[in-house]
Nucleic acid binder design. Structure first.
Lengths: 352, 352
DNA sequence: TTGTAGGCGTTATCAT
DNA sequence: ATGATAACGCCTACAA
């Protein structure tokens, strides 16, 4: 078997407890003794047995992450942010993908509980309401990182999807677009996509444009679904002048369809995405989009979770990360005057 | 504290060992007793304490994954494949990103050892030689999933990078391209990028074209590096007719530069990528590339690792996943006759 | 078929 | 300042 504290104690000529004290930097140990122990640790290349420690202390320095569709660039960066900040704070990560299925989510929740995780980050949108109950029951610190959770007990970190979607439509209408179609996310997505929908509706109402549910085509956040949604849109609504896709991949898929079929972007059709993934800077035309940082989202999620685990007082358990509309080639820019009218507009959208 | 086996035993009116037997489906337990126990388990919502089990059995059903740059679409899919197959086989995942830094890799290796992982998957290319030594020392089953490892003791799963890169250049030369430039990976990447380089050199030699190291521009697998590499290439080698980028993102970055500067693709410049990420089907022009499945790569890696953990006899500890050259709009297709000359060619490249 | 008891490697509570 | 000892929750001989 592996080297244990016992071996270290023997080599250093001290007792088990002393070794333990040294390893946990207890102050009540003579420097000389500590030195002996450390030497023995190094010599034997001793590694602590985490299971034994966890069994005894009931704290694991382990954070569980349950996600879905994490191969999407935005979410891949989210995971990267989570990992980096977790490492920084001394946590290791248990990672599971739920494919958006409730059963798998439950399953991972159980596994993670069995491993005595200190906290959990949920990046999942379909059955979050059902999850909420389980999670509350489990009494494990949790942070949602996939949208706004209205339950006041549940901490979450997210972009302000309503405001961001509002900004997009607001910009488009001020640029003169009256006939806009939308590629929304899956109806199963109860968070981000629904929130963006609300932002869109709000902006349409303010601009006194009609809300026509037929113009919202369902996609699933893939290139392919953006492509085929664009096809549907142009067939059903040939008079459309702008398309707002609820993520960048769908927007890129739509652009491919449009260009393939002879539409000029932005002159015939303006296209806007959401997320601000790197790709958007390298398409032709480059992609106008809502820029938000997945990495930042991940980082903030761990930060919040860490505070909850440490039982610190929270300022707020709802955290928003910044976003901004980045206007690139896929839409026509507003004139300076038109732009000013936006800058001065009153804040119409609040965070709920 | 949580519910333990003791509580279950008491409620079911049996002893601890009986409960343990039931939970591990030992055959030596009366069905009736088993039923009682299971009822108690359900009633109390008992969850095993994994740390205690691991401490006792010294096996964790935990697999460690150390990667770098996992936000790249190909690698994100690799992780997805790993996760799916690991779950299928009853493993949970500990995931760590090394940023390609040796120190972080070492660090995670230690952490994972402390957690008594059953095996480890390494997706890292920079210092793999240094890692090898540590890993061998640790005596933990390992699989490399990022390139061919020549050390016969070390299992790995990978695409045949040499053959694939050869295929690309072979196709280009037969299509008449004599002036080809390359966007390679980081020189620090000691695996995939180096192997592709070898495939390229081989094909150039066979085609009796000169090898000119100046025509290999270093990139880092990002869009941005592809863009700026293309810029360098066109400035230094205006007579170039084809660019082969060692991954799809760099190819897309290059395409953006070329189109932005008035080059027609493929007529002025042909462009080929590597990986076959989904995006390549939606660019304009669509991207010619080597298609390999990251998901499949992940799946096979776990499959192999699982066999090693179970101490099954291996057919081979070097596993190759399939690849194929997918010709899309970014290069001109070969005529049927030219194509035939490839199909009939003798296999010039072997797997080492 | 079931129960008893010892031990996995730590930490924490007592003494000393 | 250090050491002996009892848990933590589980598995597994061995005994019954």
């Amino acid at each position: 078997m592996d080297v244990t504290m016992k071996d270290v104690a023997k080599l250093a000529g001290v007792s088990l407890s002393t070794v333990s004290r040294v390893l946990n930097d207890s102050s009540l140990v003579r420097e000389e003794t500590a030195h002996k122990v450390k030497k023995a640790v190094k010599k034997l290349d001793y590694q602590i047995n985490d299971s034994a420690r966890i069994l005894r202390t009931n704290t694991s320095n382990l954070i569980g992450v349950i996600g879905a569709g994490m191969e999407r660039p935005f979410l891949a960066n989210l995971l990267k942010g989570i990992e980096a900040e977790a490492r920084e704070k001394g946590f290791a990560l248990i990672y599971g993908d739920s494919d958006g299925e409730f059963e798998k989510e439950q399953n991972y929740l159980n596994i993670m509980k069995q491993k005595k995780i200190d906290g959990i980050i949920l990046i999942t949108t379909n059955y979050y309401n059902d999850l909420l109950n389980i999670v509350k029951n489990y009494q494990i610190p949790v942070v949602f990182a996939s949208g706004y959770i209205s339950d006041p007990e549940i901490p979450c970190v997210t972009v302000d999807n309503v405001a961001a979607a509002y900004d997009v439509v607001d910009y488009l209408t001020r640029a003169g677009h009256k006939e806009i179609a939308f590629i929304k996310g899956p109806d199963l997505d109860l968070l981000a996509s629904q929130e963006r929908l609300r932002g869109v509706k709000l902006a349409l109402r303010i601009a006194q444009l009609p809300y026509n549910s037929g113009r919202f085509i369902e996609g699933d956040f893939t290139f392919e679904s953006g492509y085929s949604a664009a096809e549907k849109i142009m067939r059903k609504f040939p008079k459309i002048t702008a398309i707002f896709a609820f993520n960048d991949e769908m927007a890129v898929g739509a652009i491919r369809y449009l260009k393939e079929n002879g539409y000029q972007i932005p002159d015939d059709i303006a296209v806007v995405g959401f997320d601000g993934i790197e790709l958007g800077k390298y398409t032709l035309p480059t992609l106008t989009t809502i820029e938000q940082s997945g990495y930042q989202l991940g980082l903030k999620s761990i930060e919040l979770l860490d505070k909850i685990i440490a039982e610190e007082e929270l300022e707020d358990n709802k955290v928003f990360i910044p976003h901004k509309l980045v206007v690139r080639e896929s839409i026509n820019k507003l004139s300076a005057k038109e732009l000013a009218s936006i800058k001065n507009k009153e804040v119409l959208v609040t965070n709920n």
